[in-house]
Design a protein around this nucleic acid. Structure first.
Lengths: 338, 338
DNA sequence: TTGGCTATTGAAATCGATTTCAGTTGTTGC
DNA sequence: GCAACAACTGAAATCGATTTCAATAGCCAA
């Protein structure tokens, strides 16, 4: 149906090998032949078949990216970074939206096994470290964003969770808060663990006693944050501020406050994480931690593709980018009393 | 490096053809042989090479989707619909973020020519109808969302722009508004044209004179909406309501109002289009038109894949989904005077 | 004029699966 | 016991590009 390389070869009066050489501008072709072939290619509107090229070259120039939900801007911004970096290197990106289902993630990981993709980027998916480890062991190219994996051969990019969490909670303490709740994500995720650690560190450094009753979990989602806030409100333990491990859950906190008639920031200060686009439009605008999402996507895509082409000069595989606190009105209200 | 089909065949003591038949569960294999082969495949952890399959079968089980900016939730929700529908049919989705550059769109369209993808979905990209037409003529499978294309062989899915725009503007009129501005998108886009038409129809039906000074354009983006609002404010022509052809531009209107100290909805009512997730969190929440974004993505992906498999029973190519007006506080303020 | 070299070119093998077509085995009917 | 047929199976062609390896042509020096 389409023109094949031999068709071009025949029309141009040369062999398929020569046409191929022209396509991959090899230096082994005379200028005269090259021009003749290029003209013929133009005339016939010939486009080399991708599948044939992939089979022969053993590479598909494609990477995959697995995210739990593409609609959440935290993920779509990372994807954009990955896409842009890949495009610049002539790579394609297959989008894998797992809908938060582990089964779907596993199936998408299978794209590595059958060589549909040359490499895969995982953005905090549900699959266990063991699974990731296993794929790496088999020699597949993997990268991870927002999650730490021990294995030295696995690329990863994350932010300084402990430090910025400590900073965020310290900020709340400086505003006069002494009872600060923490709403975490998946309790077994590295992100959650580290953010909790920063929270605890800030409390300890300021000699504020830790109260287990002020900890709850919202699984990094709006609905989870809402439910956690409601549970916290219904407990005996009073609090005047909340550090939410991401912005989505903070949205849930806002909703719970609206329902309960609790004013932000007068009665409750809130700080989130991610600086999702939506946070600046909230009332009040949400204080949050700017995560360089786009940059993390670019970083990991570049390193992964370099690795695929044996161009990873440094051999470095672990990247940590500093995040910074953005103070907005949701936490900008000094508390004068105890 | 990986195991090949002949390796499996050798180990199982059969031919490659038989293994292939087992893989594609052909009825031509005896149950006994089939079990033996399946066991061997399991043991060897064999995965059929995708590129070889693609080359032989002349299909990649992949479609592409071109959007101007994946971060805008209008697009990411469509993508999610496409991805989910594709996944259910074992198709992969390549994400093509054009960054609003026509050149990038053209390059991504090239994935059709070299058969990297079996079909392509365009979500209001910049390329002209002629270009789309040309690709269709060449026999490539195309689908278009939020845009109308004449060619009967091109799938398209859109909403009833004229009707819902008329409805939105009528709603403003019913609130007592008589000077209603319109901020459009790309002036030569079908969406913009139809929404403008609905706007004009509502005015006409209510005997409200059309004033060219109340029309401006914001290119469907926040910054554009902001600029358009500023220009409108600076003109002589007073107005008490704005119909913005999408939510992104309405965000720009909000920003312009904040800067100028204009209160919404007391001094200016605003209605947008898309029902982007962000709109419900705004202050005041933005009245908007719910576009079934996810559903449009699902619809077009399904039809496109059906078409690729000759399963389009009806032969229908044009789909129009009804959108509905969501009234929130940004326009919920009755104007008593003239 | 011939040998030796370089620059170009093409034939054929290759990537790894699918599918056709021919062949083998086994079964049934008469 | 043999023909006819069904049920499986395998050898080889095929998809369309790349790449190796050998061959040819052209050129220069001796």
């Amino acid at each position: 149906m389409d023109n094949k390389i031999v068709d071009v070869a025949k029309k141009a009066g040369v062999s398929a090998a020569t046409v191929s050489r022209v396509l991959n501008d090899s230096s082994l072709v005379s200028e005269k032949t090259k021009q003749k072939v290029l003209k013929t290619i133009e005339e016939m509107d010939y486009h080399p078949n991708a599948a044939a090229k992939h089979l022969r070259s053993q590479r598909t120039m494609t990477i995959g990216i697995i995210v739990p939900d593409i609609i959440v801007s935290y993920f779509s911004e990372i994807i954009k970074g990955v896409e842009n970096a890949a495009y610049a290197r002539k790579y394609k990106v297959i989008i894998c939206d797992s809908d938060n289902e582990m089964e779907k993630e596993m199936e998408y990981l299978g794209l590595l096994s059958n060589r549909t993709v040359d490499g895969m980027i995982l953005v905090t998916p549900l699959v266990s470290d063991d699974v990731i480890e296993e794929y790496a062991q088999k020699g597949y190219a993997l990268g991870v964003i927002g999650r730490a994996v021990e294995n030295e051969s696995i690329l990863s990019c994350k932010t300084n969770n402990v430090e910025f969490s400590e900073m965020a909670v310290r900020h709340l303490i400086e505003q006069g808060h002494k009872q600060i709740a923490y709403i975490g994500g998946y309790s077994d995720s590295m992100e959650n663990y580290e953010r909790m650690e920063g929270y605890l560190k800030a409390l300890k450094d300021n000699r504020i006693p830790f109260k287990p009753g002020l900890i709850d979990s919202g699984y990094f989602e709006e609905a989870g944050g809402y439910a956690a806030a409601i549970r916290l409100f219904d407990r005996q333990e009073p609090f005047t501020a909340v550090y939410s491990a991401n912005d989505e859950m903070a949205l849930g906190v806002y909703r719970a406050c609206r329902e309960r008639g609790i004013r932000i920031p007068e009665e409750l200060s809130v700080v989130g994480v991610d600086n999702n686009r939506i946070t600046q439009y909230l009332l009040p605008p949400l204080s949050t931690v700017e995560q360089p999402k786009y940059e993390m996507g670019v970083c990991l895509a570049e390193k992964l593709i370099d690795q695929l082409n044996d161009q990873s000069e440094s051999g470095q595989t672990k990247y940590v980018i500093d995040a910074r606190l953005i103070i907005r009105d949701s936490s900008n209200y000094s508390r004068k009393r105890t």
